[in-house]
Write a protein that binds this DNA or RNA. Structure first.
Lengths: 73, 73
DNA sequence: AGTATTTTTATCATTTATGATAACTAGCCA
DNA sequence: TGGCTAGTTATCATAAATGATAAAAATACT
């Protein structure tokens, strides 16, 4: 497992946890972000090294701060 | 100016400020990160929407936390 | 002045994030 | 059983991040 993969997986988990804690469906978050639900699944699964702007959009729609997505990572 | 550009520029400034505060030459930081100096300049100028892993590498070599690069953004 | 160092800019190639669509799985319920 | 919802996985196209090189511009130093 590489550092990069570890980071991707950690961020995917963070997004998923925050999303579920707010009872938002994956497809609803995706729609709010103007992403396809498949691509949100891909990110939550840790299969993409997202850009900072993508993370900012997700943070905004989760109503959290960008730092909350990368804290302790 | 778009949200995306604003974010890129803010992060570029953040990297540059942290780097200069530690008296590290741009090319030295680039070398430590295994980036070309030209690409580090591009990022500091706000011309790229960096991936989270790229930012993590930069944070590591600046000896700061990843959150320090995205705080308040 | 000049010279070296550092930074910036431009450009092209390659890799990869993202966009987009479809098919599949699992769970739930009428 | 069938349909419905939520999530997953695979795949292809496109846009953009990154790799890489060269040259110009700025900065510092003697």
């Amino acid at each position: 497992m590489t550092d990069k993969q570890d980071l991707q997986i950690a961020i995917g988990k963070r997004v998923k946890e925050l999303r579920e804690s707010k009872n938002i469906a994956q497809q609803d978050l995706a729609a709010a972000c103007n992403f396809e639900k498949s691509n949100m699944a891909r990110l939550e699964a840790g299969n993409t090294n997202a850009t900072i702007y993508t993370l900012k959009i997700i943070a905004k729609n989760l109503k959290v701060e960008l730092v909350d997505l990368v804290k302790d990572l």
